[in-house]
Nucleic acid binder design. Sequence first.
DNA 1: ATAAACTTGATTAAATTAGTCATCAATATT
DNA 2: AATATTGATGACTAATTTAATCAAGTTTAT
Lengths: 138, 138
Amino acid sequence: MLISLKCDYAIRALMELGSNKDNVPIQKKEIAATRDIPGPFLDHILSDLRRSGFINSFRGPKGGHLLAKSPNKINLLEVINNIEGEVASLEPDDSCCHKWVWEELDNLIANKLSAVYLSDLLDREEQDRSSDISNYSI
Amino acid sequence: MLISLKCDYAIRALMELGSNKDNVPIQKKEIAATRDIPGPFLDHILSDLRRSGFINSFRGPKGGHLLAKSPNKINLLEVINNIEGEVASLEPDDSCCHKWVWEELDNLIANKLSAVYLSDLLDREEQDRSSDISNYSI
DNA sequence: ATAAACTTGATTAAATTAGTCATCAATATT
DNA sequence: AATATTGATGACTAATTTAATCAAGTTTAT
Ligand code: FES
Ligand code: FES
C-alpha cells in the first residue's frame, strides 16, 4: 500500500464516526473493535485527528468522539497530510537530475487524493453493503 | 520522495549509461562518481538491472556496463517494478473498506510512470544543460 | 600469470513505522 | 465529595524496511 497503515487506520476511524447517524459520541473501544484498529495505537490517531480539527472528543463516562465537520468537507489529502505530515514529499537532494518526474507524480497524487471526500467513502461503503444484501437474497 | 532511494539510484545509473554516446562500457566507479551513488550499493543495483535485462555487463579489465535496450524502450514503471518489486502494492487485508481508493491511486501512478521513458529523462537533462549554458552567456 | 573489473551473498546500520504502557486529566453518576 | 469511566499525552519498545558495507569469488584483457 502506498499510504501508511496509520493513515489507513485514521480513515477507518473517520468512516466509523461518519457513519454515525445520531449525535451520541462513539467510544474508542467501539471504533477499535468494529474497524479493527489496535486500541492503544488508536489513542494517538484520535489525538492527531482532534488536533487537526477533524473530530471533537469528550472525556468521562458517556464520553467519546464525534466528527467535527461534515463528511463532504473532509478530503483524503488533508487527512493524510495531517496524519503523516506531507504525503510523498520531495527528497532533500535538489540537485537531482530527474526531480521533475517525482514532482509531477506528487502533484498527480495530491490532485487525486484531494478529490476524494469522506462522504465518497461512506457512500461507497453504503452501496457495497446493500449490494451484498441483494446478493444474499437472490 | 515517493520512490525509494535505491530506485532513484537505479534511474541515475541508467541515465549515465544512456548518455553514453560511444559503445565502450562505462565502469561502476565512473557511474558511482558522476551520479553520486555509494559504490558498494551500486553493485547490487547494477546486478538487479542486469537480471532484469536493462543492461549488459562485462568483467575483467576494460569491463563495464552498457544499456541493453534503447532508452525509448525503457519506462520508469518497468524499472521501479524490477528494482523494488511492485510500486505501491496493495495491502494484504482485502476486507478493507476503502481499498478502491488505493487501487485507483495505484493505477494512476502506474499510468504516469509507464508513460515516462528513459529517453524523456535524457532529453530533459540535455535541455537543462543547454539552458544552463545560455544563462551563463547572458 | 596477473591485475582489473564485475558478482554474489552474508552481514550490519540506520531509519521509519507500528505499537505498548503507564500516568495524568476530565467528567458523569451516585 | 468519592468513584468509576473515559480520553490525553509522552516515554518507551518492537518490528520492519531501507540503505548500505564487506569479503570471497568469477571472468577476462594484457
Ligand atoms: S537523481 Fe533523484 S531525481 Fe534525479
Ligand atoms: S481500511 Fe484499508 S482500505 Fe479501508
